[in-house]
């Protein structure tokens, strides 16, 4: 069985938001409901100033806290790795949003669409979803159909590599080996970080992220 993972190569991220928009386009998500994000981070002073981008998304944790707290089993960990949602079951209690150490889940509370009062054809499914929680599924359905996740397929910088990490011959396994990508411990995500990027801008391991969230 395939085990899906994703590499985020931050040395190749152009900060172009193609991943964000491609995801919204594919899932027709409501305004403010974004499954992934691009965040500018800066350090240093002129003439040694630096800027890079953090990429945020569901980290598809191995022992996902969201799965543990869900009272109705609406969110589950698939055998292949992605953490997915069953919108039919979700009751919108929000416990998973509280539990997620990476702030990667959104409780949809506003009945908004892209254009006021209108449901466009690409919103027909998403507009039915209200008072429930949405999240990135690493495009689980697309992957099962042999397609790459939308954010991977639309990344002009080719900063995202997706595939079967259990297969040493897969593109992603080779990429991890060649580029020294580091797995974010306890998750399905690997990072290639710019050498000079301060550690504080890199995603924490699952255990550290849980501790940091608790400390807040």
């Amino acid at each position: 069985m395939a085990k899906y993972g994703m590499v985020l190569d931050l040395t190749r991220c152009l900060g172009c938001y193609a991943c964000v928009v491609a995801c919204k386009m594919c899932y027709g998500t409501r305004p403010g409901v974004d499954y992934n994000g691009v965040k500018r981070v800066e350090w240093g002073e002129y003439p040694d100033a630096h800027q890079r981008y953090q990429l945020t998304m569901c980290m598809h944790c191995d022992n996902a806290p969201c799965v543990e707290v869900c009272p109705v089993k609406a969110t589950t960990k698939t055998e292949e790795g992605p953490v997915v949602m069953d919108y039919e079951k979700c009751i919108g209690c929000g416990l998973c949003v509280q539990a997620c150490p990476y702030d990667a889940r959104t409780l949809v509370t506003e009945d908004e669409t892209a254009f006021d009062g209108q449901v466009m054809v690409y919103e027909e499914e998403s507009s039915k979803r209200l008072n429930l929680v949405e999240k990135c599924t690493m495009c689980y359905a697309r992957a099962q159909n042999g397609q790459k996740p939308m954010c991977v397929d639309h990344c002009p910088g080719r900063a995202r590599i997706h595939g079967d990490v259990s297969d040493p011959e897969s593109e992603i396994s080779k990429y991890i080996a060649e580029h020294g990508a580091v797995q974010v411990e306890g998750t399905s995500i690997w990072i290639v970080a710019p050498a000079d990027m301060p550690k504080e801008y890199l995603p924490l391991s699952l255990a550290d992220a849980i501790a940091a969230k608790a400390a807040k």
């Binding site: 172009c16 938001y17 193609a18 964000v20 928009v21 491609a22 386009m25 594919c26 892209a114 466009m120 054809v121 690409y122 397929d153 639309h154 990344c155 002009p156 080719r158």
Partner: peptide, 28 residues
């Protein structure tokens, strides 16, 4: 309803950027 990247036709095709993907909202 959706725009996908195109690899058919021997297209030495780059991945589509945000502006390309958002054309769904331009047409409709």
């Amino acid at each position: 309803i959706r725009i996908e990247r195109r690899s058919e036709g021997g297209h030495n095709n780059p991945n589509i950027c945000a502006k390309g993907a958002a054309q769904v909202q331009d047409i409709h």
